[in-house]
Structures are given as C-alpha cells and as structure tokens.
C-alpha cells in the first residue's frame, strides 16, 4: 500500500522525468526566431526574385569574380556561389557544355572543358547555336535544402532568401545532396554549407547584389515580385520567362529570358 507521501514523491518524479525530455524536444523554428529578432515575417511586402537575360550574357565571368571577392569565397578554390555555363549545340544535335572553374575568368578558349578527358575541339562551322547561362541559387519557394537540414541551420527569411547559420551548421552535407541545382558546397575556410544569398547583406541595405553590379551588359537583374511597379516583376509577369528544373517542385525564383531546352 502506498502512503500519501510516497504517492506525492513518485508523482513528482514521474512528472519531472517526463518534463525533462519533452523540454528538450521543443521544435527549433528559425523562421520564428528571425521574425522575433528582425520583425520581418511572411506578410512582408518584399519577395526577392532574380531575372537572367540569356540573350545578353557574353560569358565574361565578371559576375563570378565579383561574387567571389564580395562574399569571401577563396578565389582559387574550385567552388563558387554563382557560375556561368557555356552551351555549344552542333548541327548534328549534340550539346557540349562546360564551365571551366565556374568561368571566374570567363571563357578564354574555344575548346570545351571535359573534365579529366581534357579539352574538346569543336569545328566552328558545325556549330548550330551557342549561348551562355549564368547560374545562382534559385531561392526556391519550396526549398529542398531547408527541408532536409537536420538542425535548422539553414532557413528561409520572410523575403524569400535561404540563408545558412554558420555557427549552427554541422556540416553533414544533406542540403548539398538535396539541392537539384548544385548551388551548395562546403566553404573551404569555415567548413560549413555555403550558398548564394543574392548578397543579402547588400540588398537589405538598398544595394544590388555584387554580380548584378558587375555585369556590364545588364544580363542579371534583381527585383521584388510583390511590387507590381518593379521593372523586373513587370518583365516576369508580362513576358515569356522560364525557370530551371520545375519538375522537382521546388518553385525556383530565378527567372530566365530566352532559356533553351538544352540547358541543364
């Protein structure tokens, strides 16, 4: 038979024992945390989007160079937040693609870089079409990388940008695997996940991303899709734009003008 004192004691122990593990399970919600800190939330009237005009890109690589310098990604490291791809389609329907070192120094030769197979020469007379495609993070509306992060170190802000908390990333690489666009990598210095964030430190202060400022031809533009008067959002809503790899359901927010079906 249990007396009252024992009963009270045991109840306390059980309740205490239950509370401790439950307290540890409180779900970490980075979005809420950020909202509490900065006051921004889902209802914010800014949603950053990007517009790339493929017709205007010449493959100079100034954007890549500017990005690396601005965001302190070591210049000689073979990773980059943004890069430019070259597509050469020959008359027989073959497509050759390359992006030597992300094209940080542009495309200095007509030969196509084939990795360890060396360079491939293409007869200029056989070329049907050729173009350049700049790539960067799509700041997806349904980001796979945010979904798979086991610790919530990567999160989406109210204005749509996916960020990484360098002090919390454990470096498991799940987000790198989860991104269909290959925009994520491990930072060679900090050894945590790294990605393009549209230069969040600049755009939130009214400046433009480094790559947009560096592009001499206006091939890269940033805008706010929630502002109907924004020139970029006017193009996106009124012209024939396309996005990359829609089939993954990530709802990418980088729009392309003149996107060809060969683009991977």
């Amino acid at each position: 038979m249990m007396n009252r004192r024992d009963f009270c004691k045991k109840t306390m122990i059980v309740a205490g024992g239950l509370v401790i593990p439950l307290a540890a399970l409180e779900v970490f919600n980075p979005k809420r945390l950020l909202a509490e800190k900065s006051g921004s939330d889902d209802k914010s009237n800014v949603r950053w989007v990007f517009l790339v005009d493929i017709h205007k890109c010449v493959g100079c690589g100034f954007c890549v160079k500017a990005c690396k310098v601005e965001n302190e990604v070591p210049y000689d490291a073979n990773v980059t937040r943004t890069w430019v791809e070259r597509y050469v389609v020959t008359k027989d329907g073959q497509t050759a693609i390359d992006s030597p070192r992300g094209a940080k120094d542009g495309f200095t030769t007509q030969k196509i870089d084939q990795g360890h197979l060396g360079d491939k020469e293409i007869d200029p007379a056989s070329i049907a079409k050729a173009f350049f495609v700049p790539k960067l993070c799509n700041q997806c509306d349904n980001p796979a990388c945010v979904q798979v992060c086991p610790v919530g170190a990567t999160y989406q802000t109210g204005d749509g940008i996916v960020l990484v908390d360098r002090s919390w990333c454990i470096g498991c690489g799940y987000c790198v695997m989860g991104c269909p666009y290959g925009v994520r990598f491990f930072h060679p210095v900090y050894h945590v996940a790294e990605k393009c964030n549209f230069c969040y430190h600049r755009i939130t202060k009214g400046m433009k991303p480094a790559c947009v400022d560096a592009c001499p031809f206006g091939a890269r533009k940033i805008g706010n899709i929630r502002d109907p008067e924004d020139p970029v959002s006017r193009i996106i809503t009124s012209e024939q734009v396309n996005v990359l790899k829609e089939e993954f359901g990530t709802k990418p927010q980088v729009f392309y003008l003149g996107l060809s079906r060969e683009v991977k």
Binding site: E85, G182, R184, F185
Partner: peptide, 8 residues
Amino acid sequence: KELFVYPN
C-alpha cells in the same frame, strides 16, 4: 570529373 559536372 568527366564531361559536364556543375562546378560545386
């Protein structure tokens, strides 16, 4: 790497 692989 062989042929075209994304830089990252």
